[in-house]
Amino acid sequence: MDKIGVKRRRKSEKIEKNFKSVDADAGESMNIQNSIMSDLLSEADISNSENKKKPNKSAWTTDQRMQLFESIIKRLPTPLDWKEIAEDVDGKSHTQCYDQWRKRMLSDLKKSVASE
C-alpha cells in the first residue's frame, strides 16, 4: 500500500478513536447526534447562497450531509470503508465523502462536543 493510503487509514483510525472517546449513554448519545446534525445542517448551504453565479458541482446539499453522517454512524465502531460509505451518499465519490467528513463535519463535531 502506498504512503498516502497508510496515512489516510491511520487518520481514519485516529478519527474513530476520538469519536469513540466521546461516547455517552444511549439516550444522551442520541441527543448529541441530533444536536450535531442540527449544527451541521444549519450551515449546510451557505457556500451555495454566496456563489450563485458559478454553480459548484462538488457543493454538498443538506440531504447528502445527512446521508454521510448516517452512513458513518451505522458503521461505527468498525473501521470506516469510504467506498462503502460513498455508496450511501448520492452523487459523491469516496474521496469527496472522506474530505467532507475530515475537513468540515469532524471539525464541527469537535467544536460542538467541546462546547457542551
Rank of each mutant, 00 (worst) to 15 (best):
V6S: 06
R9V: 04
R10P: 00
K11D: 07
S12I: 03
S12M: 04
K14A: 11
I15H: 14
E16A: 07
K17P: 00
N18E: 09
F19N: 03
F19I: 08
F19Q: 04
K20V: 06
K20M: 13
K20H: 01
V22Q: 10
D23K: 14
A24G: 04
A24M: 12
D25Q: 11
I32N: 02
Q33Y: 15
S35F: 12
S35G: 15
I36Q: 08
I36V: 10
S38C: 05
S38M: 11
D39A: 08
L40N: 01
L40S: 10
L41N: 03
I46E: 08
E50A: 10
N51H: 15
K52R: 15
K52G: 00
K54L: 11
K54Y: 14
N56P: 01
N56I: 10
A59R: 13
A59Q: 10
W60K: 10
T61L: 14
M66N: 10
M66C: 01
P79R: 14
K83V: 01
K83C: 01
E84D: 06
E84Y: 03
I85Y: 11
A86S: 15
E87V: 04
E87W: 05
D88R: 09
V89H: 05
V89A: 04
V89Y: 06
S93F: 02
T95V: 04
Q96R: 12
D99Y: 12
W101Q: 07
K103I: 03
K103M: 06
R104V: 06
D108M: 14
S112Y: 12
V113K: 07
V113F: 07
S115Q: 11
